[in-house]
Design a protein around this nucleic acid. Structure first.
Length: 333
DNA sequence: AGACCAGACCGCCAAA
DNA sequence: ACTTTGGCGGTCTGGT
């Protein structure tokens, strides 16, 4: 089992605190055996006051961090700007021995305070981005994304973006299939693309702003063929300029970036669930060649398609499982 | 690894 | 007056 310590300091946000327990706790293998051992650690064992006013009993103190392979620092409200020596030492030593460090919401303040984010890309809740940047100008803050993975350091935006981060971690550790099962159990989106910009600008997207939804749906059905901006614009019956503009306001990203993301998800699914050669997987998921797929794979997941399949592909007795028409919505289940 | 080229992206502006 | 659209062109990016 992968060992996870969840660190919650003074004023911890209960919503955020629950996320890693819910997501990692729900991750099971095919035989329903839990895949993560998750612990709540605080500055010291005992009661921690939450941002909601009530207190929660932490069964562990900072020493629990030594035990963990992954440490998730949960946000506090207001953010924990000052971090005492022990917390700093515990996090630094976790990093030194190669543990994975992640933050949810304003947990990034704690990591930044320890100097762990210097010269790295990171994100935090959009409401605190100005404050964060002022305090930690040496951190390359990106306010526009749901989460960022920089090697063994991951940071996520506010609250629910923590779910995206944790699901991503599960998918890296145990494959998409497992992550999707968790998403289904927790009834959350298996993979939300686009940044937090979409929530900043339109907290509840008006129906009108969903106008490209069917166009995206069409694209998901045709990932295996080349899709140009012209194609999408024609589909949406607008100019390319307007398409790009709307696309950004709805998803927080550009059409090509979004397509690449979706194609990678499809490729991962094909690698996990079929025996198709990598070259064929590349074509089926709309990458022009195996080389392109390999490049994207390395950029996004830091591994190769072959190794990915090795790690997560089910060895199936019946031979190739080929569902033919590549449909990305199958990712949801 | 690097070069090349088509296509993607986006600021700007005028028109609707 | 204000919002939305679409075209132009310069720069950037991704795929080969």
């Amino acid at each position: 089992m992968h060992r996870v310590a969840v660190l919650g300091l003074e004023g911890v946000i209960p919503f955020d605190l629950g996320i890693p327990f819910q997501v990692f706790g729900d991750a099971r293998d095919a035989d329903e055996r839990p895949l993560y051992d998750v612990s709540f650690a605080a500055r010291r064992r005992g009661l921690v006051r939450t941002s909601a006013g009530f207190s929660i009993a932490a069964p562990f103190g900072l020493s629990r961090l030594d035990w963990a392979q992954t440490v998730v620092v949960v946000g506090s409200d207001p953010p924990q700007a000052g971090v005492d020596r022990q917390v700093r030492a515990a996090l630094r030593s976790a990093q030194r021995r190669g543990a994975r460090l992640a933050s949810i919401c304003t947990g990034a303040f704690v990591l930044a305070e320890c100097g762990l984010l210097d010269d790295r890309r990171a994100t935090t809740h959009w409401r605190y981005c100005d404050d964060f940047h002022e305090r930690y100008p040496q951190v390359k803050l990106d306010p526009a994304v749901l989460f960022i993975e920089e090697g063994e350091l991951l940071t996520s935006a506010g609250a629910a973006a923590g779910i995206d981060l944790c699901l991503h971690v599960v998918s890296v550790d145990y494959g998409l299939e497992v992550a999707n099962r968790v998403a289904r159990r927790t009834v959350s989106a298996p993979h939300r693309s686009g940044g937090q910009a979409q929530f900043i600008e339109t907290p509840m997207p008006s129906p009108r702003l969903q106008s490209l939804e069917s166009t995206r749906g069409w694209a998901l059905e045709h990932l295996h063929e080349p899709i140009s901006l012209d194609d999408l614009a024609r589909r949406a019956a607008v100019s390319v300029r307007t398409l790009v503009r709307h696309f950004r306001s709805e998803t927080g990203t550009t059409p090509l970036q979004w397509l690449t993301e979706q194609r990678l998800l499809l490729a991962r699914r094909l690698l996990e669930q079929t025996d198709l050669p990598v070259e064929v997987v590349a074509r089926r998921s709309g990458f022009g060649s195996g080389q392109t797929l390999r490049l994207r794979f390395r950029q996004a997941l830091g591994t190769t398609p072959r190794d990915y399949r090795e790690a997560f592909g089910a060895a199936r007795a019946g031979g190739t499982i080929d569902r033919g028409g590549a449909r990305c919505d199958a990712l949801a289940g």
